[in-house]
């Protein structure tokens, strides 16, 4: 059960690269900007430019390519499926292959390649965000970016606080899960063998005590927070101040250039 001890929170890789040191707000916005760019691109050249740009960012994050690609594991299946569907379903142009009613046509291949590149780039780019930004910074950045929404009644401060508290308690609850598993195993519950149904039923013996204790923790935490003068987001100051620097300015400058280039190159 050492797996639980080393459970990675998010997939953040600490570092001091240019990308790491960008303001989290800048990085969050950049993911949006990049998504727009990816959807603007519609031919080989514009995709190539964006791919090159992503490669540059990967290089700039000084995280190994292999590690970054490993983080994309869950996306591979989706990519393959999208590719296959587009190849088979989109019609038009020269017919390359025909097998009964299944045909592979030129337009289909083109679409399949473009759409999967699009998806891959988006997945890669957003994983770069979580790889280079600590969850705490992300929560802070989100709170600040979404702050205007609090005027229309969105509980932005509460959501951000929930996020940070959840992050704070993940290791605590993992430790606890570990303890419960050992305690139940020592009482004879077998988690390792048996059919799926039996194993699922045995999980109840972990989940129930875990929930009970989580609720107790929540209650005590709420009391402790109140005792320390917590009364919602109003009038609250923050220790962590986010500051835009020349780095962020440079990053936004590059974004503008990219917009111009893609707008010019695309068909």
């Amino acid at each position: 059960m050492n797996l639980l001890q080393n459970f990675p929170i998010g997939q953040y890789v600490p570092g001091h690269s240019f990308i790491h040191r960008l303001d989290p707000r800048c990085k969050l916005l950049y993911v949006l900007i990049f998504a727009v760019l990816v959807f603007m691109a519609n031919d080989g050249l514009s995709y190539a430019i964006l791919a090159l740009f992503t490669l540059l960012i990967m290089k700039g994050s000084s995280i190994s390519y292999r590690y970054i690609l490993r983080g994309l594991k869950p996306v591979w299946f989706l990519l393959a499926l999208t590719f296959l569907l587009h190849v088979l379903m989109t019609k038009g142009g020269t017919v390359y292959l025909a097998w009964g009613w299944l045909t592979v046509e030129a337009e289909g291949v083109r679409q399949a390649v473009f759409i999967s590149v699009r998806l891959a780039l988006l997945a890669l780019f957003s994983s770069l965000l979580t790889l280079t930004t600590s969850p705490l910074e992300l929560a802070d950045g989100l709170e600040r970016l979404l702050h205007p929404l609090s005027r229309v009644g969105v509980p932005v401060h509460e959501i951000a606080l929930m996020l940070t508290i959840a992050l704070r308690f993940i290791p605590t609850l993992l430790d606890e899960t570990d303890k419960i598993i050992k305690a139940q195993a020592s009482r004879g519950i077998d988690f390792e063998t048996g059919g799926l149904w039996k194993r699922l039923r045995n999980l109840v013996a972990i989940v129930v005590p875990l929930f009970v204790s989580a609720f107790r923790r929540a209650e005590e935490l709420a009391l402790a927070m109140e005792a320390r003068g917590y009364r919602g987001g109003e009038g609250r100051t923050k220790l962590r101040q986010l500051r835009f620097t020349w780095r962020d300015l440079l990053a936004f400058g590059i974004a503008l250039i990219l917009f111009a280039v893609i707008g010019w190159v695309r068909r």
Binding site: L136, R217, A224, T237
Partner: peptide, 26 residues
């Protein structure tokens, strides 16, 4: 219970919590 009264994700964030509540300037 020490685990159930620490709010911050780091030691200094936790010490800051009460100060943030009473609006101490950063």
């Amino acid at each position: 219970n020490p685990d159930n009264q620490i709010v911050g994700s780091t030691v200094e964030d936790d010490v800051a919590f009460g100060l943030e509540n009473i609006g101490v300037p950063p």
